[in-house]
């Protein structure tokens, strides 16, 4: 039953009452957790959409000076992709009951994420030492803000990841862990997607014309 259909029923009508009584109700914690993650991802999506909008809006001004290129970001992107792949592998494994492979996937995913965050930190340092670095340049400020917020979300993910990892040794509830792994994987894929958009944006800052043409402004 689609949401639109549901909104048009007459809840007071006798016939509808018979249908509504069939609603089973009740909570299932896994479903609740999955839904909670989706709602949270919607919130995060709004956050980054607003940042992207603000960034591109600012980029259209004449005095826009792009931030210098930090090529380390290419490597970081690759590492983040690897972490997503590793978690996907963990999810694939746990669904097939291959617990050892899952552990490897989980650990690799977390390790790649830590490497990514360290790489981002190095990129920050690199940018800070560049000669024409100035914080008053909006492009550079946006760079720090956007990468910082993205990193903060990954850090938050690592907390959830850590709690999952702590549980997968010895005797443990596979069903519960399986869901934790799945939720982590969804979150990582989402943040990878966000990163790819942000990365594209931060680099098109140097190729403003391309972006403006894409948006039909120029």
């Amino acid at each position: 039953m689609g949401i639109f259909h549901e909104l048009t029923v007459k809840p007071w009508a006798t016939d509808q009452g018979k249908v509504d009584d069939l609603h089973a109700g009740g909570t299932s914690p896994p479903a609740a957790r999955k839904l909670a993650l989706r709602v949270f991802l919607a919130v995060v999506a709004v956050l980054f959409t607003l940042l992207v909008t603000a960034y591109s809006g600012r980029m259209a001004y004449e005095d826009w000076r792009p931030a210098p290129q930090v090529s380390l970001l290419w490597a970081n992107t690759l590492v983040l992709i690897l972490s997503s792949v590793a978690l996907q592998w963990a999810q694939y494994s746990v669904r097939r009951g291959r617990i050892d492979a899952m552990r490897v996937g989980l650990l690799a995913g977390g390790t790649f994420t830590v490497v990514f965050l360290f790489g981002q930190f190095l990129a920050w340092r690199q940018l800070a030492t560049m000669v024409y670095f100035e914080l008053t340049n909006p492009a550079i400020a946006f760079f720090y803000l956007i990468t910082g917020l993205h990193g903060a979300h990954l850090l938050g993910g690592l907390v959830a990841w850590g709690r999952t990892v702590a549980r997968v040794w010895g005797d443990f509830d596979v069903a519960k862990t399986r869901q934790s792994v799945e939720l982590c994987t969804v979150y990582w894929h989402f943040l990878l997607l966000v990163w790819l958009v942000l990365f594209g944006l931060l680099f098109t800052g140097n190729n403003l014309d391309v972006l403006l043409k894409l948006c039909g402004i120029r």
Binding site: D20, A24, A32, V39
Partner: peptide
Amino acid sequence: VVTVLQARTRGMTMMR
């Protein structure tokens, strides 16, 4: 949000 969507008791549809 999750409570309203996921924890309604038996027979409690959204339109009720």
